[in-house]
Nucleic acid binder design. Structure first.
Lengths: 195, 195
DNA sequence: GTCTATAGAGTGATAGAC
DNA sequence: GTCTATCACTCTATAGAC
């Protein structure tokens, strides 16, 4: 990783974000210094400020990027049956979160380190994602496919259950990710009273 | 809270723990200084070291106390039916966690700020709690009361789902805690295929 | 048991040379 | 665009007076 002084902005920028993502996930935002991020990238601390106005913006940009990607990748098709839409959601949620454990961890753990303004913006994105699942549950109840007493509670319960996979699942373990997805889908399907 | 110099050890000790619990939950371990804890208690920072050898021990003692209390309070009766034992577990878990949100939050969020030795001890306690639920599920499967493909996965899924209540439930909201417990029990009951 | 004072290290962010 | 140097604090933990 030897580097001479000079122009590297096009590669240094992403490397700063990657290093911050990894270190924030590993040690927590408050415990990571700008010097530590710089060391990971291979520059001095002062150089980071060419890529972010401050540490807070670095955190916010990572979280906003993750949430935007999450919303963009979740493709719900209201033309399908609620049953199929819910199955797709379960499969998507587990697979998407499994593919980016650091970003997921930060999005859940570092909310309190956002300024109030930044917190409100991330919360709004998270809420939009929840609303997507609740719409599926409501459609299923309306069509008589699901038996759910309170769609809001069921939404939160299902998301908490699915996100929990990230805390224990590791590739190469007893079960493949597809097997895990199948098992969670089985539990979700029955929890909502789907046929 | 006026106080003169002198002997207050019997009340200051618990106050240090209470202040640390509250502040760690609110801002995170790494973001809370010993001065902040001392300020909350009404003493100078140096005085805290009469009650804890260092900041790390303060965190560990809070987490170990919480986990020990959790294990002591969960009273499973293997003489009951698996159905009743599971219902009791759901009810107990939600109510116990609701009663001490700060300790629960710390127990989940600050694991990475423990030294490796302390982490291993807390993990062992958490594992014992999980094993309690898994024993119930296995008994239910053995007796033909439950239909669960993998009791370990179901254990983790149920605990994640139930613990999630703490992230959104607030007293005085749309639903009472008893109503929430009833709804979660309905979802858990169906997820494990109980009659 | 609590105080003040301090050691020794680390913090985020900026200025100006190259 | 990156460097070095630095400002102005803050941090944990300890020593010794009272």
């Amino acid at each position: 990783m030897a580097r001479t002084a000079g122009s590297h902005s096009d590669i240094t920028g992403p490397r700063v974000r990657d290093a911050a993502l990894r270190l924030f996930a590993e040690r927590g935002y408050a415990a990571v210094s700008m010097r530590a991020i710089a060391g990971e990238v291979g520059v001095q601390a002062g150089a980071l400020y060419n890529y972010t106005p401050d540490k807070q913006s670095l955190l916010f940009d990572l979280m906003e990027g993750h949430m935007t990607e999450l919303l963009g990748a979740s493709a719900d098709d209201p033309g399908q049956s609620p049953h199929d839409r819910l199955q797709d959601f379960v499969s998507f949620h587990i697979a998407f979160h499994h593919a980016r454990p650091d970003a997921v961890f930060i999005a859940y753990m570092e909310l309190r380190n956002l300024t109030p303004e930044n917190f409100a913006r991330i919360e709004a994105l998270r809420r939009r994602y929840e609303d997507g699942l609740e719409a599926i549950l409501r459609a299923g109840v309306a069509q008589g496919d699901f038996d759910v007493a309170d769609t809001k509670i069921a939404t939160l319960a299902i998301i908490a259950m699915l996100t929990g996979v990230n805390t224990w699942f590791r590739d190469g373990g007893r079960l493949s990710l597809d097997e895990v997805i199948a098992q969670y889908w089985g539990m979700v399907r029955r929890a909502v009273g789907a046929a």
